[in-house]
């Protein structure tokens, strides 16, 4: 997956968890939870969906790396380099 595809993958996961949020204008540099309503339970679900869909394990100490979309791309780039993007909604 490219960095852009990672952002798509994350947004797709969020749209599954929080279908009532508008994800159209997310700023990749701003913390996700400052732009949409995501609580700790939702955040944990992003991590769990990443594991379910792409087999990537994010240890708890690294959760903070996923705070922004850009952070997600930085952190997950290496982990997901050889993974194909597939959307949770079609899984």
């Amino acid at each position: 997956m490219t960095r852009d595809e990672i952002a798509i993958a994350i947004k797709d996961i969020i749209s599954q968890i929080a279908p009532d949020e508008d994800l159209g204008n997310l700023d990749p540099k701003v913390r996700l939870r400052d732009q949409i309503e995501l609580d700790s339970m939702d955040f944990l679900d992003i991590v769990m969906e990443l594991r379910k869909l792409y087999g990537v394990q994010v240890p708890e100490a690294d959760y903070k790396e996923l705070a922004t979309l850009e952070g997600c791309a930085n952190y997950l780039e290496a982990h997901l380099a050889d993974k194909e993007l597939h959307c949770a909604s079609n899984a």
């Binding site: 599954q16 968890i17 009532d20 309503e37 609580d39 339970m41 939702d42 679900d45």
Partner: peptide
Amino acid sequence: RGAKGTPLGRLLRQLRIHP
């Protein structure tokens, strides 16, 4: 004001049931 932030909203998200 929508389900967001209420316990019901959290439950629906946990179960992926659209409000």
